[in-house]
């Protein structure tokens, strides 16, 4: 897995790519939590994610909960079909704010 952190307007974007599994989700988790610790509104761009397991999903859950506690905005972008079916298994597709693109998220924020 690779990840890249960038800024776009109000948001910090954590871009994950490749397989997010037990071996690397701790890194993804740290990257997400670090943004939130700095009180940045955070979006996780998952368009490059080929596979995500429950350790990755748990990291997203923890991120979202942390964001809520700090009244920060949080969400997922570009969730692939495969990742979506993993989220759906635990009904998390109804929990996370999910948008196809950053632009759609920004439109929804207005």
């Amino acid at each position: 897995m690779d990840y890249r952190v960038s800024k776009s307007g109000d948001y910090t974007i954590v871009e994950l790519a490749g397989d997010v599994d037990l071996s690397c989700s701790p890194d993804a988790r740290k990257a997400i939590l670090r943004c939130l610790e700095r009180s940045e509104h955070t979006l996780v761009d998952m368009s490059g994610v080929t596979y995500i397991d429950s350790s990755g999903v748990a990291s997203l859950v923890e991120g979202y909960q942390t964001a809520k506690k700090k009244s920060l905005r949080f969400g997922l972008l570009g969730v692939s079909e495969a990742a979506m079916s993993v989220l759906q298994l635990a009904r998390l597709d109804k929990v996370f704010p999910i948008h196809a693109t950053l632009q759609q998220r920004l439109d929804a924020d207005v």
Binding site: L22, S25, P26, R29, S54, S55, V57, A58, S59, V61, E62, A90, R91, L92
Partner: peptide
């Protein structure tokens, strides 16, 4: 694994869900 305690707890809860 050597995952963080918080992460393991959430993972177990996810699977119970």
């Amino acid at each position: 694994t050597k995952l963080d305690e918080e992460l393991m707890t959430i993972m177990a809860r996810l699977k119970l869900e």
